[in-house]
Design a binder for these strands. Structure first.
Length: 373
RNA sequence: GUGGGUAUCGUCAAGUGGCUAAGACACAGGGUUGUGGCUCCUGUAUGCGUGGGUUCGACUCCCACUAUCCACC
C-alpha cells in the first residue's frame, strides 16, 4: 500500500541545509519549500479560493477544532468533504486541534485520554482525543492530517515537557492505529520537547520510529526569543529523516521563513500575513508598512514598487489607508491578497535560488532590502 | 423684539463648590507568528464660551456680554 502523501528531494543547497523538494498528495503536487496560507474556518479570511490559486498556492491549512465545533464535521462529510465544501481542489492540511490545547489554555483539561475543552463559541464541553481528532479529519478528508499533540508554552518546566512529549508520542501511536485509509490521507507526526536538546531528541526518536509520511516541528514560535528558536530549530531538523517532508508549524514572518529554509525545513504555515493584513500591516520588499500611518494619507504610490500583485498593480497606499480607516472590507481583502502574494512569491524565489545554488546570496539580498523585520 | 434653555478635548458627553476634569468615538504610535476575536496595548484638555464678581477655594454660585437652540410675536 502506498501512502497518500510522499516527499521527493530534488536538490540540496551546497552551502546550507536548504533543500528543494516536492510533496505529492491525492490533490496534486506541492513544490517545497512552501508557505501554506491558513484558512481556519474553511476559508482564508477575505479571499476567494480562486484568488489563492492564482497566486500560486498549492496547499491550504484548515482546522479540526474549529470545523468540528462549527459547522460540525458530519455536515462537511455530507457536503462531500472539505475540498468540495469550500471549493478548493488542491491539497489541504488540517491541524489537529493540538494548538488549541495551548491557545485556549484556560478552557481545557488534559488527561491521558485526551483534552477536555470548553467551546469558545457556546461553552459546551468536548473531549478531543487522538481518535476523535482523526475521526474528524477523516470526515473532513484533508490530504495531510496532523497528529493530535499537546503544544506547550515555552516557559513550561522540564518535567512537564517530558511527560507531555511522551504523551504526545503515545497519542501519535493511537492516531496511527485509528486511521484506516492510508492511501487517501496521511498523518504527520509532531515533535515536541520545548527548548531542551535532549527532550527534542527523545521526541524525534519516538515519532520517527513510527515511520510517518512526514514530520512537523511543533512547540516553537510560542513566545521564545528568536535566537532560542533558531538554536532549537538547528538541531531539531537534524533529528528528522532526510527522505520525509519537514514542517515547521506556525512560522510565517519573512525572516523566520528564510531561517527555517536555511535549516532544512520544507513546509511552513502562519496566520501572520492574513491577520496583520486585517490590522492594516503589509509585508513589502522594503519591510513592514503600517498603512494606518498618517504619512501615507497623500501617498499615491503602490504598497511595494517591486510587487506585481493585484493590489499593487491597481491601488495606492493613500487609498488602502482610506479603506482601512473607514473600516471597509475591501481594505482587508486587498492587503490580505498582497501579503499572501508577497510570501508565496518570496518562497518561489527561494526555491529558484536553491535550484541555482545561491540561496544564501538571495537571503542576504532580501535582508538588505527588507531592513527591520 | 419677548420669554426660556444650553455653552466642558476634533465629535458625543460625565462632573456640580474642594485631591493631578470620567468615558466613548475620532486622531497619533505600536503589537500580532500550528487564527476565538476587522483585535489588543499606549498616548493626547495646566483646560471647562468671553469678561467681571462672590469665596480660603469655582467647570460648578452671581452679573454682563457673545454664540446657539426652542417658543411666542
Amino acid at each position: 500500500m502506498k501512502n497518500a502523501v510522499s516527499y521527493e528531494l530534488i536538490k540540496e543547497d551546497s552551502k546550507s541545509k536548504a533543500r528543494r523538494g516536492r510533496v505529492t498528495t491525492p490533490h496534486g503536487t506541492i513544490e517545497t519549500p512552501v508557505f501554506m496560507p491558513v484558512g481556519t474556518q474553511a476559508t482564508v479570511k477575505a479571499m476567494r479560493p480562486e484568488q489563492i490559486s492564482e497566486m500560486g498556492a498549492e496547499i491550504l491549512l484548515s482546522n479540526t477544532y474549529h470545523l468540528y465545533l462549527r459547522p460540525g464535521h458530519e455536515i462537511i462529510k455530507e457536503a462531500g468533504g472539505l475540498h468540495k465544501f469550500m471549493n478548493w481542489n488542491s491539497s489541504i492540511l488540517t491541524d489537529s486541534g493540538g494548538f488549541q490545547v495551548f491557545s485556549l489554555g484556560q478552557l481545557r483539561k488534559i488527561t491521558e485520554e485526551g483534552a477536555m475543552f470548553s467551546s469558545h463559541i457556546d461553552g459546551s464541553k468536548h473531549l478531543l482525543s487522538p481518535e476523535k481528532a482523526i475521526e474528524i479529519q477523516n470526515a473532513l478528508g484533508s490530504d495531510i492530517m496532523m497528529a493530535f499533540d499537546e503544544c506547550i508554552p515555552c516557559d513550561a518546566d522540564k518535567v512537564y515537557i517530558k511527560d507531555s512529549l511522551e504523551r504526545t508520542s503515545r497519542w501519535l501511536k493511537r492516531c496511527k492505529d485509528y486511521h484506516q485509509d492510508i492511501e487517501k490521507q496521511s498523518i504527520f507526526g509532531i515533535m515536541q520537547g520545548g527548548m531542551h536538546k535532549d527532550l527534542r531528541y527523545q521526541s524525534a526518536m519516538e515519532i520517527v520510529e513510527m515511520d510517518m509520511p512526514g514530520y512537523a516541528i511543533g512547540g516553537l514560535s510560542v513566545g521564545e526569543p528568536k535566537e532560542v528558536m533558531l538554536e532549537v530549530l538547528d538541531y531539531c531538523v537534524d533529528y528528522l529523516p532526510k527522505e520525509k517532508a519537514r514542517y515547521l508549524m506556525g512560522v510565517g514572518s519573512p525572516d523566520y521563513l528564510f531561517e527555517g529554509v536555511e535549516r532544512g525545513v520544507d513546509m511552513f504555515d502562519c496566520v501572520l500575513p492574513t491577520r496583520i493584513a486585517r490590522h492594516g500591516l503589509a509585508m513589502t520588499s522594503h519591510g513592514r508598512v503600517n498603512i494606518k500611518n498618517a504619512k501615507y494619507a497623500r501617498d499615491f504610490t503602490p504598497l511595494d514598487d517591486n510587487c506585481d500583485c493585484y493590489t499593487c498593480r491597481n491601488y495606492s497606499k493613500a487609498y488602502l489607508r482610506h479603506l482601512h480607516k473607514s473600516n471597509e472590507m475591501l481594505g482587508a481583502m486587498l492587503l490580505t491578497e498582497h501579503n499572501l502574494h508577497f510570501l508565496i512569491n518570496m518562497m518561489k524565489n527561494i526555491r529558484k535560488s536553491i535550484e541555482e545554488d545561491r540561496f544564501l546570496e538571495y537571503k542576504r539580498e532580501f535582508y538588505d532590502n527588507y531592513g527591520k523585520f
